[in-house]
Design a protein around this nucleic acid. Sequence first.
DNA 1: GGCTAACCGGATGAACCCGTCCACTTCGGC
DNA 2: GCCGAAGTGGACGGGTTCATCCGGTTAGCC
Lengths: 203, 203
Amino acid sequence: MRADARENRRRVVAAARELFAERGLDVPMATIARRAGVGVATLYRRFPTRADLVVEVFSDQLGVCVQAIDDALADPDPWHGFVSAVEKICAAQVVDRGFTAAFLSEFPDAVDYERERVRAERVFALVAQRAKDSGDLHPDFDRTDLTLLIMANGGITAPTPEAALAASRRLTTLLLTAFHLPTTPLPPPAPLGLYHTPLGPGR
Amino acid sequence: MRADARENRRRVVAAARELFAERGLDVPMATIARRAGVGVATLYRRFPTRADLVVEVFSDQLGVCVQAIDDALADPDPWHGFVSAVEKICAAQVVDRGFTAAFLSEFPDAVDYERERVRAERVFALVAQRAKDSGDLHPDFDRTDLTLLIMANGGITAPTPEAALAASRRLTTLLLTAFHLPTTPLPPPAPLGLYHTPLGPGR
DNA sequence: GGCTAACCGGATGAACCCGTCCACTTCGGC
DNA sequence: GCCGAAGTGGACGGGTTCATCCGGTTAGCC
């Protein structure tokens, strides 16, 4: 591949990362191309479908998750490791609108991406088992509960990122509370009146 | 209003109710008109904006919520009333994709709809206070926590309605558990492997 | 420096959705 | 029955996005 082509590809991925985070996975391809400073054709040549671009962008995001889960497994305190992994994943997700969608989507053609995702789930199951064995995590915790939390977290929308982050933190801690033995204190609620948004053309 | 016009209006609302429930609030207006068996112009004459139609459709859905909350206030057991109200609201929401969006949207022009929604929130605050006074509900429960739960619940997506309902029930019960004093047993997890959906053009 | 293949950007046409306009139809009072 | 007003449906222009095609440009080997 020629040097300029490689540079353009890099800029496309960077632009897509920003826009996916800001606006979700369905930003127009032309917008991504414009922000990258290239033509639409260049984008389509590198990534024939949107899914190709999504996989490229979120491979390293997935890597962050995997890292968090690996760290959790290495944590000397099983419950602390479990909690910090969950919190890291949820925090990464709430500041990146596309991340949830990418994490909850299947990419039948991206074999290694799928493999990495499955591996993350498997290691997380170990983390959970360790926390159960130490008597901190409720035995009814199921491996689908992480997915459930991620979906629920993804439902959070708020006008400002700060409000969204606060709401996400409260939700996360609430669910962790439900799974923790024995009971821990509750996190503070989000600022009032910051949830509702007017019905407009934009979603 | 002429008799045939009234009938057409009724059919438009019915079609919109079905489609909003199936596909969310952003179904094309033409699709609604087609399902109702009328022309687009007829739809636009009755409901100049999409918000008008949404308000009309979800007024009675909101009525169901209000009824559930009123029932909860009349329940002799404060905690049971609180739980059943929350469960009813979440269940109604998970089988109707548009309901969440409608409940979380503001309609500055629909005065009575807004008034009803605000009243529902106020009565629900009474229900929560009663459950706190009886010692069942955690004092940290905040009135925004219902909105938080509704948003989280709205994030749940699953290929089949059954899986979505199961996931919603688990999430709801988990959060209720976190707010309940003392601890109650956890609900069963959803069936495995039913959460992830392939990335397609349809959202 | 010259040349060729790779690369680039914008133009392009198809598909979709919105909201309006207009010629035709039908209700229902008389 | 008649007739006017209310009602109807589909066509249409404007806007957006997608994904492809093509003529001009540039990198980088010789």
